[in-house]
């Protein structure tokens, strides 16, 4: 390393991985991973989120999992909860939909209405 700037650049790169241990005010992406979710294909959804978030180096996003919400017929369900606790529930997700949610919702802050529970469950 030849300068302080280089050190800071490295820090920015590695910081994201550590934020998981901070319990900080992150946006959380919660994937339903009970038997129903996994059977409906939640694992590829989870992996797609992890991959997209790392690829785009998005800060302050935690990808985590939860159990069954009771809406098994709509699985895989993904909830995106921002730091103020506002929640958007996406249903019947798959890997492609996951990348789109990352690109539109997490990066640009636009909810992908057509995948949300209000629209897609009909």
């Amino acid at each position: 390393m030849k300068s302080l700037e280089e050190l800071r650049a490295l820090k920015a790169k590695v910081k994201n991985d550590m934020s998981l241990r901070d319990g900080s005010e992150d946006t959380r992406v919660v994937v339903g991973m009970a038997t129903c979710g996994i059977a409906a294909g939640a694992r590829p959804v989870m992996n797609a989120f992890l991959e997209e978030v790392s690829k785009r180096n998005i800060k302050n996003v935690q990808v985590t999992m939860t159990g069954c919400m009771g809406l098994c017929r709509l699985e895989p369900i993904v909830e995106v909860i921002d730091k103020d606790g506002n929640k958007v529930t996406y249903v019947k997700m798959n890997a492609e939909k996951a990348s789109r949610v990352v690109a539109e919702h997490l990066v640009n802050g636009r909810v992908v209405t057509e995948y949300t529970i209000g629209a897609a469950a009909q």
């Binding site: 790169k13 994201n16 991985d17 998981l20 241990r21 989870m46 992890l50 790392s54 990808v63 999992m65």
Partner: peptide, 10 residues
């Protein structure tokens, strides 16, 4: 770098 959904600290 790769990120993970969970860290297990031993």
């Amino acid at each position: 770098m790769q990120i993970y959904r969970s860290h297990v600290l031993v």
